[in-house]
Write a protein that binds this DNA or RNA. Structure first.
Length: 284
DNA sequence: CTATAAACCTGCTGGC
DNA sequence: TGCCAGCAGGTTTATA
């Protein structure tokens, strides 16, 4: 699943590859991918614009065009954006862009959840409405995190997934950050101590930076801008490690469901002082 | 405010 | 071996 590191890695690759390239034409083969915009209007508007720079906000990949438009891409569950040689076929292509140098930029998405929206750069604020701070920005301090956690009693795992609280965390990195900080996923957000918040802040930044360094986590379908898998899966400690021994203490990793999401944690390293488990520990 | 569920989709897995 | 129900999860919307 593309979360912040997967989007950031692709953004950096495309910044090198795509800036200065001009879009010759666009073809939409699954209309809902571009939302409510008319297919023909989308194609006509994007054609002949040149890529000026690439950006990212949360899980949104931003392609700034010199005609004043921004292509904002959210890959959701299974979307990939990559540069493809002219001949190759991808059965899951939903939108394709032909570039002036003969290359093609493909948006491929088996489950069709992802969205490409073409917005005027002057309207970007509306696109970003409801997004919390960037977790790797300087302004994202432990104090900033503390402020946002203090106002809710929701489970910390659910709170970390809320894009209005922090932009860019998804199911994988939320679990990893909580493990890194030694915090149980069901702890109420407003119950964290100052020390725990500092640890969580550090954990969030650590797991995201590691994810970027290794090209993102490829478990299902994530691919980078060259259609290559990332290798961060080797650096995960709990996500989809159910039953496997914790790398720190050997206790089997447990899986529970929090806010309708599979949630993985180490019962020993992420102890639970305030939350009562649904299945109480068996005493011998 | 908070929680829960359904909808959007299809590939993949596990059970029989 | 083959079939199929159900799971996977980011986001929005609806409902309690």
């Amino acid at each position: 699943m593309p979360e912040l590191p997967e989007v950031e890695f692709v953004a950096r690759q495309l910044q090198t590859e795509l800036v200065g390239s001009r879009v010759v034409s666009a073809h939409v083969s699954w209309a809902r991918t571009i939302g409510d915009m008319d297919t023909r209007e989308f194609a006509e508007r994007v054609a002949r614009q040149t890529v000026r720079r690439i950006g990212r906000r949360g899980k949104l990949l931003l392609i700034f065009l010199d005609g004043g438009d921004v292509l904002a891409i959210h890959r959701r569950m299974s979307g990939n954006l990559y540069i493809s040689p002219p001949a190759t076929e991808d059965p899951y292509t939903r939108v394709s862009f032909s570039l002036d140098d003969g290359r093609r930029l493909l948006y491929s998405d088996p489950r069709k959840f992802g969205r490409l929206s073409l917005v005027a750069e002057t309207d970007l604020d509306a696109t970003f409405a409801g997004l919390g701070p960037e977790p790797l920005a300087r302004e994202f301090t432990p104090d900033a995190l503390a402020q946002r956690l203090a106002t809710t009693k929701r489970a910390i795992k659910a709170t970390l997934l809320d894009q209005a609280v922090i932009a860019g965390l998804g199911n994988i990195y939320a679990d990893e950050a909580l493990y890194c900080a030694g915090i149980h996923p069901l702890r109420p957000a407003n119950s964290l101590t100052r020390d725990e918040i500092v640890a969580l802040h550090g954990g969030i930044q650590t797991v995201l930076e590691t994810g970027i360094r290794y090209g993102g986590t490829t478990i299902g379908r994530h691919r980078d801008a060259f259609n290559e898998a990332g290798t961060n899966v080797a650096h995960l400690n709990v996500y989809q490690h159910t039953g496997q021994p914790c790398r720190r203490c050997g206790t089997p990793i447990r899986r529970i469901v929090v806010a309708q999401r599979g949630t993985h944690y180490c019962p020993h390293c992420q102890p639970d002082s305030t939350v009562r488990e649904k299945r109480p520990a068996i005493r011998e």
